[in-house]
């Protein structure tokens, strides 16, 4: 039985802390090492994992993730491999995909949802899919009881925040700044405002991504968000210091969300 996102957020709320969600792309630097790094994140205290499906044209990603997914694709990482990674980590923590829309459309949304459910996955974050274009995905996800997770941005109007809240399940992904993924010295001050505005429109947990890279930032953002999402910093740690680097950074981040 795989762990569920709603149970996770309920537990974190009872512990009076934010959830820590970590992202790594499948196949960087190899399939085996990427899965080992995800399992190391679990051991070091991550609460949920975003399994990234590498894509040739990652328009929402900055240079760190671009370079990693390029390398993964050159190394032969396939969409089918991503289900294997979900299967490996989903018994331990709630696991969702992070995928651009075209690989899902090409795979077939129904089959994609069925295979994700079979692998123990809880849902998927789709950074270039807006609710208006998501009809086939919402249908497929509902049929498999998966959580479709959509993104909101500082530029989203209140009406759009409400629209995203209506179709999302699991949580809402709040992009902290106007920009692409990557580590930043400071998480934008628009993040807190966005979380507040989003909460006014939906009861779903609101998790903040883009720019969180260390325990101190996790502590700051964790005071107002239901979860923090870390991607580029973990990819960089894997690139520079291997699985141990991922483990150390995850420990720092896990301590950060528990700091009061």
């Amino acid at each position: 039985m795989s762990a569920r996102l709603d149970e996770l957020f309920a537990r974190c709320r009872s512990e009076n802390r934010a959830a820590l969600i970590g992202y790594l792309p499948v196949g960087f630097p190899s399939y085996d090492v990427s899965v080992a790094a995800m399992l190391a994140m679990v051991e070091a205290g991550v609460d949920a994992i975003e399994v990234g499906i590498p894509y040739t044209d990652p328009g929402m990603d900055g240079p760190v993730i671009q370079v990693a997914v390029d390398a993964a694709l050159r190394g032969g990482s396939r969409v089918a491999h991503a289900f294997g990674a979900v299967q490996a980590v989903s018994p331990h923590v709630p696991t969702v995909f992070m995928s651009y829309w075209n690989p899902i459309e090409k795979y077939g949304p129904k089959r994609f949802a069925a295979d994700l459910r079979a692998a123990g996955g809880q849902g998927a974050i789709t950074p270039d899919l807006i609710p208006e274009e998501a009809g086939s995905w919402l249908e497929a996800a509902a049929a498999e009881d998966l959580d479709p997770i959509f993104v909101v941005a500082p530029s989203s109007t209140d009406a759009r925040l409400a629209g995203v809240g209506n179709v999302s399940r699991g949580f809402v992904y709040a992009a902290s700044t106007m920009g692409v993924t990557g580590t930043r010295a400071q998480v934008g001050d628009r993040a807190e405002e966005l979380v507040t505005r989003t909460r006014a429109q939906t009861d779903l947990p609101v998790c903040v991504g883009l720019g969180v890279s260390n325990g101190d930032q996790a502590a700051v953002v964790g005071r107002y968000a239901d979860g923090i999402i870390v991607g580029s910093a973990l990819v960089r740690a894997l690139q520079d210091d291997g699985v141990d680097g991922v483990r150390r950074l995850t420990e720092d981040l896990a301590a950060g969300v528990r700091r009061r």
């Binding site: 899919l129 807006i130 274009e133 993104v151 941005a153 500082p154 530029s155 759009r160 992009a175």
Partner: peptide
């Protein structure tokens, strides 16, 4: 009105661009 030419077109972009 939503930019579809039959099944084609539309908007497959990050939410951050929708306002623009």
């Amino acid at each position: 009105i939503s930019g579809h030419f039959g099944p084609y077109g539309g908007r497959f972009v990050p939410e951050a661009l929708i306002a623009a």
